[in-house]
Design a protein around this nucleic acid. Sequence first.
DNA 1: CAGTGTTAGATTGGATACAATATCCTGGCA
DNA 2: TGCCAGGATATTGTATCCAATCTAACACTG
Lengths: 229, 229
Amino acid sequence: MSANAELARLVARAQPRFRTTAEFVEATLREAILTGAIAPGTPLRQEELAETFGVSRMPVREALRQLEARALAEFHPHRGAVVAEISATDAADIGAIRMALEPMALRLSLPSLTTDDLAQADELIAEMDGEADPGRMGELNRRFHMTLYGRAGHPRLLALVEQHLLAADRYLRFQFAALGYHPRSQDEHRALLAACRAGDGAAAERLVMEHVGEAAEQLTAFLKEREAG
Amino acid sequence: MSANAELARLVARAQPRFRTTAEFVEATLREAILTGAIAPGTPLRQEELAETFGVSRMPVREALRQLEARALAEFHPHRGAVVAEISATDAADIGAIRMALEPMALRLSLPSLTTDDLAQADELIAEMDGEADPGRMGELNRRFHMTLYGRAGHPRLLALVEQHLLAADRYLRFQFAALGYHPRSQDEHRALLAACRAGDGAAAERLVMEHVGEAAEQLTAFLKEREAG
DNA sequence: CAGTGTTAGATTGGATACAATATCCTGGCA
DNA sequence: TGCCAGGATATTGTATCCAATCTAACACTG
């Protein structure tokens, strides 16, 4: 069996409201990879993808190159592209990047946060409380974080942050499996929001760094054990 | 285990000569953009580039998509790609990212730095002393920083750091114009190296953050004034 | 039977030609 | 002047074709 079934569903659902075919293909594949709909290591055959998407090979190749630049696919010359592998060290890598970027984003954003932003973050926490589906949970978590960082006004920084929040989502089901993620994470979310509300930048930065760091550490340990076993 | 480590080194050094045409085009264009050989805002016409490189349009398009993913080019549907603009806010953006990432990279790398690494960093500082050419200066500066971060062992993080060191190079000639860059920066390099040599992680992290931050601040102020004038 | 050619098939990488489409520019017209 | 129709231009996407090369299976050799 190859890339598909699941992917075909995503293709069907994806809205044709993209500027170009290549971007439509890229966005759809990216989502499929990030959500795990296409497993790591899966070959991404051009002809097959072209047929699945109902397009020619060229936009597919452009999309694959973009995925490569985002570290979501790997190219092996004359052997084609495969979905980038996941690993304990990769998870640690992403965790380190998040621990570096997110406190900075928060620092830049905090002074400009509005009461509306804080209220929205509050709502997102509440929504997460009742959420069991990992995919939906990942999205809510991402929106919570991005809401707090959103006023930073540094588009490149924010794009990187979001990209790595998304990258972290590839590990979401392991995150859940690593146990205890949900409730402790929610406590940390609340503490973080409280610090933001109080305008305590130093505390907020520390909390977000710990929040990300602890999750990454748990996850990495879990994956290491899994790889060893 | 077999055909020894020595061979592995030779293989690794038997340098890539690009794997594909698309990668050759991408690397060349990237360098041209980063060094300023192609000015911001310049249209990147496919046909023209294809002819210049002596290739067809297909690898050119793949290369352009990769440049887009690296924020070095912007696509405007049906109007083509242009070299990404530079601005004071963009410089500040890159500065913020570097201030976040580089201390983290240094923290992870410092414990594993060898005396060879430190000696090489020393040499690079000495080389920079006698250097007047901005392009060469940028390369030496980049190598100095990457030498210190190189043992971090987090490939994604290091790739991001290098990418933004390169991105900063787009602003190099303004960096020089903003004055005082060279001598003060060299003092900071020496102080940073000393802290690394002493194994004082906290100080090293602080120094690198200040080093990056001050340069970015000066540069941003210079560009703001220039944009206003 | 391990190890080494050899060959066939599949897939990518790239070139070329052409059709479709969106943007910009310009010139005529109210 | 203002505007709008339409052509020039460029990009976007499709359809083929071909060369390079990777994989795998098989045959050969010692």
